[in-house]
Design a protein around this nucleic acid. Structure first.
Lengths: 349, 349
DNA sequence: GGCGCTCGGGCAAGCGCTTGCCCGGCCCCG
DNA sequence: CGGGGCCGGGCAAGCGCTTGCCCGAGCGCC
């Protein structure tokens, strides 16, 4: 393992000079030495030790990202945006999956702190769990106080940089669209109860219901895992419990796709018999049948903006930006059946 | 920013003792001191500098992963597997997106080398580009020679650990299935020409064709970007060029989904008029209409196995393992239309 | 021709941690 | 009662790099 000292020796210069040449520091160096050193680097296949550099240098270079799960398209999109701008700035990014485990999240914050990353961006819903949230907040502030920036996406905690997607408004848009089409009783497939994203979006739905003179009661809401299988199961339960349902709003597209699978399996026509609307506008939403109406969140852009905020100087003012939710109507929503529909029949395997 | 020295001072011990307690080293220390030190750590909110640790310690701890793009479901699945086992081993993973740019790939190898990661796993197709491949190979060997392990997924280059998916065989399975159904002229939507995955899978298709007494000529093959849009465009071209086509094989599911969109748009019935088969069995394949026949690759498992290999001791024998491709027939494939079909009409917007 | 500059280069002090080694007590044993 | 072991703890030498500072040489200037 060649070291800088090896290079310097071989080129017949001091390590100081070698270092300056390799990192082309502002300090001027003679052309002859420069060539000798560069040659030595090539011959020795010298690869500087990034840890030593980081230790010796003042400034931090890598940035950390904590998401629930990169393989979830929602985070994959965001991560794509994050990555792009980090790379454009010549920053290495370290991605960590918390798998929605607050403890793991905490541990990762420590880890990234320990590695002295320049910034950490925390993406994904927060938790309704005061003690944990408080602990996270402390750690984040500690990290900031030692020179790191933090940016959060879609979280309530913490006062640093933040991108906040219009979850409540998006929920409102989804339900409002359904009510406007003439639906009167809609079911909702919600995510896990302890996630703030769930309650935020739900709040929007509720507001729309209220405005239209309806109410979303417990029997119309089914909490489920935030993924396809969760949606599939929840759709079944909802249908069984509310035979007169004519529309379903799912709090994200993965669950909506699951619901669609359930509906298809039961032979329930979408949107003829039941309308369905999702949330997020993930890439696949356009490829299912029927193409999914949904509320679009500019995921990649959110990533871009979050990283842009996070990569500013440590003492720049924290900023919070909103990301607009936008209704996109495709073919999975339509007016309810004309006449009082026959109840959907319960599922027979 | 509290340092170990601060902690030691506060606890009234030497840094050596503090260090030993914090990392609970095998060397025994008195209970009284232990408590004092731990208290100091808590009060000072000490977070050890991972760079300094890495520098001082002998052993490496993080591992690097280079993929084409985590937001591509193919890599997202693999990454999930990689992450899981790395985490189980208490390893931090650094994920890098090369966006299929060989230069960027090279740069990332250097970067991970510089950070002295314990291992590098390189996932995704290699390139038909001898000079670049050679450079990559050198870098990888250099990295290995300095104590790092490398594992590759689906690549030909390099002699270290490797998981090789049965791309050729999978291609064979796809085409064979089509021919057995009675198709005689099939079109193929291939990926970029310079990717080895493309040529590998294509070779399998060709072998099947040969065995069934057919030939895949240039007019039946369309090279495209390895994603949905690529597939969509290629399907159109293929159809226009070969009106009598009754089946299409796409070299991955993303392209197949794109093809499906194209077919739907043109009103071509799948599988009634044209059969379609994909490759990879990505999660969404089951949710499109009709559900996609495909060749399954155990993506997450591949990730798990690759990381397991990579995390062995530096001097363990390199090993190469195969990952089985498996045909999964769903609803997008069927026998060709009974009577000579009318040519599909060219696309009118 | 001496002075002060600039310029190119090296010295060496860290950066924050780990760990081999040494050292002083104490206990146990003969 | 003396010596050897063991145990708990500290000293200090790195790990590989960066960078402030110093130094000597060459130059232009008055």
């Amino acid at each position: 393992m060649a070291t800088l000292a090896d290079v310097a020796r071989r080129a017949g210069v001091s390590t100081a000079t070698a270092s300056r040449i390799i990192n082309n520091s502002p300090k001027p160096v003679g052309e002859a030495l420069r060539e000798r050193v560069l040659a030595a680097v090539a011959e020795l296949e010298f690869v500087p030790n990034a840890n030593a550099q980081q230790l010796a240098r003042a400034h931090r270079t890598a940035v950390g990202v904590i998401v629930h799960d990169v393989s979830d398209p929602y985070f994959a999109e965001i991560t794509r945006g994050l990555q792009r701008v980090a790379t454009d700035h010549g920053r290495l990014v370290i991605i960590c999956n918390s798998y929605r485990d607050p403890e793991r999240e905490l541990a990762y914050v420590d880890l990234l702190h320990a590695h002295r990353t320049a910034a950490i961006v925390l993406a994904g819903s927060g938790y309704h769990d005061a003690p944990t949230t408080a602990r996270l907040d402390r750690k984040l502030r500690l990290y900031e106080s030692t020179g790191g920036r933090v940016a959060v996406i879609g979280r309530h905690e913490h006062a640093g940089d933040a991108i906040v997607p219009e979850n409540e408004h998006g929920g409102y848009l989804a339900a409002d669209a359904l009510y406007r089409l003439g639906h009167t009783t809609i079911g909702v497939i919600a995510g896990p109860k302890h996630l703030t994203t769930t309650t935020d979006r739900l709040a929007g739905l509720r507001r729309a219901a209220r405005e239209h003179g309806h109410r979303l009661t417990a029997r119309h809401i089914e909490y489920a895992g935030f993924d396809r299988n969760g949606g599939m199961a929840a759709a079944g339960l909802l249908l069984d419990r509310n035979p007169s349902l004519t529309a379903i709003a799912a709090l994200n597209d993965s669950m909506a796709v699951g619901a669609l699978a359930c509906l298809r399996e039961r032979g329930v026509d979408v949107p003829g018999r039941v309308s369905l609307i999702g949330f997020d506008d993930m890439p696949i939403s356009v490829d299912v049948t029927p193409p999914l109406s949904t509320v679009r969140l500019p995921l990649e852009e959110i990533g871009v903006r979050a990283m842009s905020l996070a990569l500013r100087e440590p003492d720049d003012e924290p900023r919070v930006e909103h990301a607009a939710a936008e209704l996109v109507l495709r073919d999975s929503t339509a007016p309810p059946p004309r006449h009082r529909p026959r109840p959907t029949k319960a599922h027979r395997p």
